[in-house]
């Protein structure tokens, strides 16, 4: 479904992403792992158009989307959440998701119909599915960190995506919140049939939900394969056990 070939990006001489390759099939859950600074977030930014790559190609459903601006990437039904919480601080939970739905419906050029009467049902359904319906009228700035991370996912769902990119969905969450979030991701894959690409530091989570794993080190792809293949790969063990912060097993 998504095919990334030899994608590269250099910032001021620093090769943030260097010859990254990735393939994600329809309905899969693929995890990107790698030590801090390996270029995971930059890779996601390149795929979603927030940064333009220096070279390489991104194909989505056999269509070249390399270098498209983010709002057009979103129109291809690719949505994402961010690692650092990126929500609309001054608006309510409901409004955050509603804008996403309105945007998908191309209604944001409508100047005179009150927003309050539009897309209510769908927004409520999305909030219900992620478990935020009770807090829908709360200002986002007053939410807990975990709730905001979930809201991120809800906003991504507002775009009715086929392909969902999650950048460290559980980072900073408490244990109970984490398990709820994992259930949510599983549900999105199983009941809604979404294809999911995510990155995560917690290996338990990665091996718990991913079908396949791509390992990134210093901007490049080390290996992409099933959990078993990755677990047994020497290069991966070197990268991780040789002086990094995450333990594989």
């Amino acid at each position: 479904m998504l095919e990334v070939t030899s994608l590269s990006k250099t910032f001021d001489g620093f090769k943030a992403v260097n010859d990254a390759n990735l393939a994600v099939g329809k309905g899969e859950i693929v995890a990107v792992i790698g030590p801090n600074g390996a270029g995971k977030t930059t890779l996601f930014n390149l795929i979603t158009g927030i940064i333009k790559p220096d070279s390489g190609r991104v194909l989505f459903k056999n269509e070249d989307i390399t270098g498209l601006p983010p709002h057009e990437v979103c129109r291809k039904r690719i949505s994402r959440s961010f690692q650092i919480v990126n929500v609309f601080q001054r608006l309510t939970v409901f409004e955050n998701v509603q804008i996403s739905v309105l945007s998908r419906e191309k209604m944001t050029w409508n100047l005179f119909t009150p927003s309050a009467s539009l897309a209510i049902k769908e927004t409520d359904e999305i909030l219900e599915s992620v478990g935020l319906l009770k807090k829908k009228n709360r200002t986002t700035a007053l939410l807990s960190h975990g709730d905001r991370k979930v809201l991120e996912i809800a906003m991504a769902l507002g775009g009715n995506p086929e392909f969902l990119i999650l950048d460290e969905p559980t980072a900073g969450m408490a244990a109970e919140e984490t398990s709820r979030c994992i259930d949510l991701i599983k549900k999105l894959s199983q009941t809604m049939g979404l294809t999911i690409l995510f990155c995560e530091h917690d290996m338990e989570i990665v091996f718990g939900i991913a079908n396949r794993i791509m390992v990134m080190v210093r901007g490049g792809t080390v290996i992409q394969g099933s959990c078993e293949e990755v677990r047994c790969n020497e290069a991966v063990q070197d990268a991780y056990l040789g002086g990094s912060d995450v333990c594989l097993m």
């Binding site: 949505s79 961010f82 001054r90 996403s100 906003m155």
Partner: peptide, 10 residues
């Protein structure tokens, strides 16, 4: 509130 996020929701 967040231009980058806005781009990303289309």
């Amino acid at each position: 509130d967040n231009p980058v996020r806005s781009e990303m929701i289309g």
